[in-house]
Nucleic acid binder design. Structure first.
Lengths: 188, 188
DNA sequence: CCATATTTGTTGCTTAAGCAACACTTACTA
DNA sequence: TAGTAAGTGTTGCTTAAGCAACAAATATGG
């Protein structure tokens, strides 16, 4: 149990930092946000920032992890089938993550976008490898890359609804994990 | 020049205190608000409260002074005539003060109401004695008491508009300071 | 009315946050 | 491209805020 009571001042300061980072991100590109920007908006001392986070990348990392995890938990529980329906949900959760986090940044051209991509793919890899009940991450990883790639493709064109697009992509995605999936069925 | 830079932590803490006091006052009677109530809503330590204010009465005092002064400054500048028009403005400013501060308390039965009354009367006394260009506060004081009393009367009945009521009361009020007013005119 | 709980100020000690100065690494721009 | 500006981490020292425990004053309700 992590019952180590945290000093209320630390909680307050951390919240001030994360809040002002959120606020800055709504109208400024991550790469052009300085630590000074964050701390002066938060009305805290710059030195204090560094006693909470190593640098702004860690801050972004921590916040992304939290937010992405939060959205993922809303969408998935641990005992589901890896089928078309689930793939649709994966596309939708990525979409929601982008809606919530990409207020003003474009994918692939800044650090923040890269971090999101990395974390989302990792989250999906974990879910998939867990559902496949295997420690071998290879197929799960390829699956997540393919799925994320498909999503980016959809974002660029977005001719179909996300759900229709997901259905089209589903079969190819399921092919990737076909072997493991069959093994799992044999065992059952 | 009061250029004594204040520690940002103190500013923040003070704001937390005043904000939560404001919030508590919106649904709780002043007499039933404890220092603990204020500090736990503000998420600060009770001991810290006492390094900012002597007690909750001082807090209320300071906040009232600020808010009343603010409203008074909106309504009055120093170079006005003490006539019917000005008296109407006085009634109106009291009305506004009560609107802003009496979200949920009733006059005369709690400490807070008494404090408001005291401060408003003092503010009016100062304005009047300033306009009369005299150090003798007696008539100014009587004037302010009478005016405040009239306002309370209006609040109870409120048959007329405040402006009409103020016009009715004006002549009697001006009587009070008649002597000083005449002396002033003689001098001019 | 008396016992029990709650609130009030106060204190000594601990810790988080502020500050200023530092060397250093990127950005501008004349 | 040289030189100034702006940003980055880090440090030692100072100060505001947290905490727990205290006696004393006020509720409050059985």
């Amino acid at each position: 149990m992590n019952t180590a009571k945290i000093d209320p001042r630390a909680i307050r300061t951390r919240r001030l930092i994360t809040d002002s980072f959120d606020q800055l991100m709504s109208y400024k590109d991550f790469d052009h946000i300085s630590v000074k920007d964050i701390t002066s908006l938060a009305t805290i001392n710059r030195a204090t920032f560094y006693s909470h986070f190593v640098d702004k990348y860690e801050l972004a990392d921590v916040m992304l992890t939290e937010k992405i995890q939060e959205i993922m938990n809303e969408h998935f529980n641990c005992f589901e089938e890896l089928d078309e329906k689930m793939i649709i949900k994966m596309f939708q959760s990525i979409s929601q993550i982008h809606k919530n986090l990409f207020t003003n940044c474009r994918r692939g051209y800044d650090t923040f976008g890269q971090m999101i991509e990395e974390k989302v793919k990792e989250a999906i890899t974990l879910i998939v490898s867990h559902l496949l009940k295997t420690d071998n991450r290879l197929e799960a990883s390829m699956f997540s890359w393919a799925l994320y790639g498909a999503f980016v493709e959809w974002e660029l064109t977005s001719k179909e609804t996300l759900e229709d697009f997901a259905k089209t992509a589903a079969s190819a995605l399921l092919q990737i994990i076909d072997t493991s999936l069959n093994e799992k069925i044999k065992v059952v």
